[in-house]
Design a protein around this nucleic acid. Structure first.
Lengths: 159, 159
DNA sequence: TTTTTCATCGTATAATTATTCTATTTTTGA
DNA sequence: TCAAAAATAGAATAATTATACGATGAAAAA
């Protein structure tokens, strides 16, 4: 009851915040959190939470929440924002599960390409004209998340 | 090599079109397709493909691809869909009342044209880039129906 | 050609995870 | 409250999957 659901919540938090490679390992972490349970119970918990074990880019198997199942974290994009920002970006607007990016003339297709190669799971695909890019977003993805992905974050001001 | 990559492709198609619950089971299906391999190799393949095993709504564990992409088998189907199947089709994904079709580079516009001329009432219109097509669907149209229209039907059975 | 390197894969086995069976606790309904 | 039903979980084990190791073959280098 109370105990179980709170345990499930903790499991979700652990799994989403660190790389857990086995149920034994997760069991140890839970123990530190004050949860005493066996591997059998944990297995049932994970099944209920629909947590999956998937290969990560590092070649290890880690547990992932159902929302992240398809998500491979490719973190080598520190310069991605720089690239985007310097390649004619003008604006981005959202409408439902679509986003429209305006660019300087001629910049759209190369910028769309830059977006494409990242294989963001939240962006199903892009179509570029000359100065406009249409992004089709995964359902339910908040605009802020897309902005963050594309590093269109407002770092200095809000106006 | 050639053999391995084609095998990986087949695995992707199988996993995306049917509910596979174990590597043994998948091994059997692959055998029917003419692939001889062991569970060890399959385990490695799945790791490379980043296929995950996750609990499904039915309470069973099934393998899932790292995204929602529906891969399609390239079998000749003699009708209008043959054209689609042989013209660079790669994958189709859905998001709300939109579908995004990925094609080989350069194939999108001709494929979109092929779709357009059918005047499907469930497809309001298409927009094509170089390797991506956006389909705007009539509201409420289930993805499966679109796949059927476009003859992306799952021919999953054991023959 | 010969050697080296690299990728692939099978065998056997280790490691991991799911489940059966049973016990205990909690909830429900009268 | 009390009995029945359902939920929860542990122990043991079955089932499943990953991997160490060695073998093989193909490509690359010498």
């Amino acid at each position: 009851m109370k105990k179980k659901t709170s345990r499930l919540d903790v499991i979700k938090m652990i799994v989403s915040s660190q790389q857990v490679g086995s149920q034994e390992e997760l069991l140890g972490i839970l123990k530190n959190e004050g949860f005493e349970l066996t591997q059998a119970t944990l297995s049932r918990d994970l099944k209920q939470l629909k947590v999956a074990k998937a290969a990560s880019v590092t070649g290890k198997y880690v547990y992932v929440l159902p929302n992240d199942i398809m998500y491979v974290r490719n973190v080598a994009s520190t310069n991605a924002s720089e690239m985007l920002m310097t390649s004619g970006f003008i604006s981005i607007q959202f409408s439902g599960n679509l986003a429209v990016i305006k660019t300087k003339p001629g910049y759209a297709s190369s910028m769309a390409y830059d977006i494409d190669i990242h294989n963001y799971t939240q962006i199903l695909g892009t179509i570029a004209g000359d100065d406009t890019i249409l992004l089709v977003l995964k359902e339910g993805t908040p605009p802020a998340q897309i902005c963050k992905l594309l590093s269109f974050v407002n770092k200095d001001n809000d106006k």
